[in-house]
Simulated assay, not measured.
Amino acid sequence: MATGSVISISEILKNSNFAVLKDIKTSTVEFCDEKTGRTVSKAKLEISMEKYKAINEGVARANLTKIDGGINCDNNGKS
């Protein structure tokens, strides 16, 4: 159920240039079901991503323009 959400979120991050896909791993995990006492296998999905390097610069620029009532720091502090 959560697999679709994880894939959707990773695609949104990648397509919006917020993150870069590093690796995708799939495996199965076995655990004991408490109700039945049986061993159950479930799928495991691991998506490794790295923050896009230009994000910090873009966020910093956007925050500078919002500081002090909208003073634009790109114009040396002149509104």
Rank of each mutant, 00 (worst) to 15 (best):
V59R: 11
G69F: 04
T28E: 10
N15H: 08
I67K: 11
T3C: 04
G70N: 02
E30W: 00
E34L: 11
S27G: 13
K14N: 09
E30K: 12
A54H: 13
K42I: 02
N17Q: 13
D33L: 00
N17D: 15
N56W: 03
N17P: 05
N76R: 07
I24H: 07
K53Y: 07
N56Y: 08
K22D: 14
I24R: 05
G58A: 13
S5F: 02
V20E: 15
D68L: 14
Y52N: 15
S5Q: 04
V59T: 11
A43S: 07
L21H: 05
F18I: 06
K14W: 05
G77S: 02
D68K: 11
K53G: 06
A60R: 12
T36P: 05
G69E: 08
T65K: 15
V59N: 07
K35D: 10
L21E: 08
E30P: 00
I67E: 10
G58M: 15
D33A: 02
T28R: 05
E11N: 13
I67L: 13
T36M: 04
N75Q: 09
K78L: 10
N76P: 01
V40C: 01
L13Q: 01
N17K: 15
I71H: 03
V40A: 00
K35R: 06
I9A: 10
S16M: 10
